[in-house]
């Protein structure tokens, strides 16, 4: 069962993602901000990390960069799931080392499809979808 770490400050959305992923057969660990996500990530292993961008204490970009700095975590694909969709914001996310940048609101089935695609493609950076 693939293990996924999620980071999302909004309780409702954190629960929504957690339920969606759990319902689809993933094991989910949830963090409420970027700082906590970095801490939890170090305790891994995870097959994928999915983060919001705008979070207290440490935003998603910074958290992603911190994770990519850690040797044992560098290969773990990071995906942003954010309501911020301007090209500059997407580019900053990809520049921080994320493999994909998805927009809220999301359709649960599309979210699962994308996650499965990333996991199947292995852990090499691919085309942004």
């Amino acid at each position: 069962m693939p293990r996924i770490l999620i980071a999302e400050d909004e309780l409702d959305i954190r629960e929504l993602i957690k339920i969606t992923l759990t319902f689809s057969g993933f094991e989910v660990v949830a963090a409420e901000d970027g700082l906590r996500a970095v801490e939890l990530a170090a305790d891994g292993p995870y097959d994928l990390i999915m983060m919001d961008v705008q979070m207290p204490h440490m935003d998603g970009y910074q958290a992603c960069r911190e994770i990519k700095k850690m040797r044992e975590l560098r290969h773990v694909p990071v995906v942003f799931l954010s309501a911020k969709g301007q090209s500059s914001e997407v580019n900053e996310g990809l520049g921080a080392g994320a493999i994909d940048y998805m927009l809220k609101p999301f359709a649960p089935d599309e979210l699962i499809t994308r996650i499965n695609q990333i996991l199947e493609n292995g852990r090499k950076p691919g085309q942004v979808t």
Binding site: D12, I13, L16, I19, F23, A83, K104, P105, F106, P108
Partner: peptide, 18 residues
């Protein structure tokens, strides 16, 4: 978008049979 995420997401969850 943030509240829409919840509205749409939970609606879909219900329709998925979650």
């Amino acid at each position: 978008r943030t509240p829409l995420t919840s509205i749409r997401g939970y609606t879909e969850l219900m329709l998925m049979g979650a």
